[in-house]
Design a protein around this nucleic acid. Structure first.
Lengths: 224, 224
DNA sequence: GTGACACAGTGCTGCCGATCACATCCGCGC
DNA sequence: GCGCGGATGTGATCGGCAGCACTGTGTCAC
C-alpha cells in the first residue's frame, strides 16, 4: 500500500489488512491543473484523500472576487464537511497540479465508523486540527499586515512542501502570485511588492510558482 | 433532563437513560461575567457544554490586541479541539454573562465514543459545522468592509439569541462595542460609527449590550 | 450627591493597501 | 521566429479604516 495513504488520517488507525480493505472501496480520480473536483453549491457527500499533487479550496464572492481557504496536499482530506454535516459544498476544489485522489462515499464510510471507533477518533482529530489552522489564519487576517501574512503563508507552505537544498529551502507551491494573493486575502499587486521587497533584502529568491527561502529567521520575525 | 442539554450535539443521539448516565459523569461549573474558564496556552483536555449564558472564545496577539473567535451559547461546545487534537488551548474562554457549564474529561468521554458510534458522528457534525461557520467568517473578513461585517454579525447574533417583539427582533448579545469590534476584526470607533449610521437610517435601535433590529431586510442587503 | 470608572459617541489625521494603468517578460503554438 | 495570452513588475492615485484625542453618559460605591 501507498506510503502517503498510510499516513493519511483515514488510514492511520487501521492495520494493513483493514487499510487494504478500505482502500478497495475507494475510487480513483485524476485531474489536470485547472480541473475542478466539485463546485461551491454542488450537492455531494463524498470525501477525498489526495494521494498526489495539490488542490486548492476556494470561494467566489457575489461580485466575482476569489478567496482561497486552503491548499490541500498529499495525505490530506477534501470534502469532509459535506459528509459529516450534510449540505451542499461550501467551496470549490480545483487542481493546482496534476492530481490523483481517492474518493469515498458516505455509505461506504459509515460501516467503518460504526465498527472501528479509531477511525472516528482519527477523523475528529483531523477536523479539529483543520479548525485550529483556520482559526490561526483568521487571527492573522486581523492582526497582521499583508507582508506579514505573505511571510507566514510562505513559511507554512515551506513546512508542508519545502525541501532543503544547499541554497535554502526550495518551496514549489504551484501557486501564481494571483493565487497567493487570494490565499492571504490581498491584491496581487500588493503581494508582488511584498515578495519583491523580501527578495531585495535577500530573504528569498523568486521562481515560477516556487520560492527558495534563504533567511527563514528573518521571515519568521516579519511574520509576527 | 434539561431541555437545552437534550438538544446539545453530545446528547442528541442518546436515549433518555443514556443521556442521564452521561450527564451524571459531568461536573457543573458556574462563572460570573468576566471569569475565565481557561486561558490560551493552558494544558487541558476537558470539553464543556454551555447550559446557561454566553461565553466568548478569544485570543491575544503578541502586542496585546484582542480578537474574538466566537460567542458560544446554550447547547454549544467549548474546548473540543484540545480534546480531539491533544495540545494546549489555543484560545481563552471568558464568560460574557453569568454562565453554567457541564464539563467532561477525555477519559470520561472515550468509552462513549467506543461503544456508541452515534456520539462520534454527532461530534463530527458539530465540529464540521463550526468549521463551516469559521470559513464563512474568514471569507467575510476578506470580502466585506467593516459596516458589512457588523451587519452580518448582528444578523448572526439575532438568529441565535434574538426574540421577536412587536417592535422588531430584540437581540441581547451581552457584548460591549469594544467586544463587538473584536468579533468583527475592527476598531471600536469604526464599529461605533457603523452602528450609529445603521441607527440613523432606522435599521436598528441601540441599547446597552443589546440591539433591536427594525429592518432586517436592509441589514441583510448591506451585509452582502 | 459626587467622584470614579467603564462604556459610548464623534471629528481629525495619516497610512496601508485596493485599484488603475502601464510596461515587461516568458512559454507555447504554429 | 513571431505573435499572443497569461503572468509579473512597478508607479500614481484614492479611499477606508486605525489611531488619537476628546467629549458625553450611565452606573456603581460610599
Amino acid at each position: 500500500m501507498d506510503d502517503v495513504l498510510r499516513r493519511a488520517p483515514l488510514f492511520a488507525a487501521l492495520d494493513d489488512e483493514q487499510a487494504a480493505e478500505l482502500r478497495a472501496s475507494m475510487t480513483e480520480v485524476t485531474l489536470a491543473r485547472g480541473d475542478s473536483l466539485f463546485h461551491e453549491g454542488d450537492p455531494g457527500d463524498r470525501l477525498y484523500v489526495v494521494t498526489e499533487g495539490k488542490v486548492k479550496l476556494h470561494r467566489t464572492s457575489p461580485d466575482g472576487r476569489e478567496n482561497m481557504l486552503a491548499v490541500v496536499g498529499p495525505g490530506e482530506l477534501i470534502g469532509e464537511l459535506s459528509l459529516f454535516d450534510p449540505g451542499p459544498r461550501t467551496a470549490t476544489a480545483t487542481a493546482l497540479t496534476e492530481v490523483k485522489l481517492l474518493g469515498l462515499g458516505h455509505g461506504d464510510l459509515q460501516p467503518w465508523l460504526n465498527v472501528r471507533p479509531e477511525v472516528s477518533t482519527a477523523l475528529l482529530r483531523a477536523v479539529a486540527r483543520r479548525l485550529r489552522r483556520t482559526n490561526d489564519v483568521m487571527s492573522d487576517l486581523v492582526f497582521s499586515d499583508v507582508p506579514g501574512r505573505v511571510a507566514k503563508a510562505l513559511l507554512d507552505l515551506s513546512r508542508r512542501f519545502g525541501v532543503q537544498s544547499e541554497e535554502g529551502i526550495h518551496v514549489v507551491h504551484d501557486l501564481t502570485q494571483e493565487e497567493l494573493a487570494q490565499l492571504v486575502g490581498a491584491s496581487r499587486e500588493t503581494v508582488n511588492k511584498a515578495l519583491a521587497d523580501f527578495a531585495g533584502r535577500g530573504w528569498l529568491r523568486l521562481e515560477a510558482r516556487a520560492v527558495i527561502l534563504l533567511d527563514v529567521e528573518r521571515l519568521a520575525k516579519r511574520s509576527r
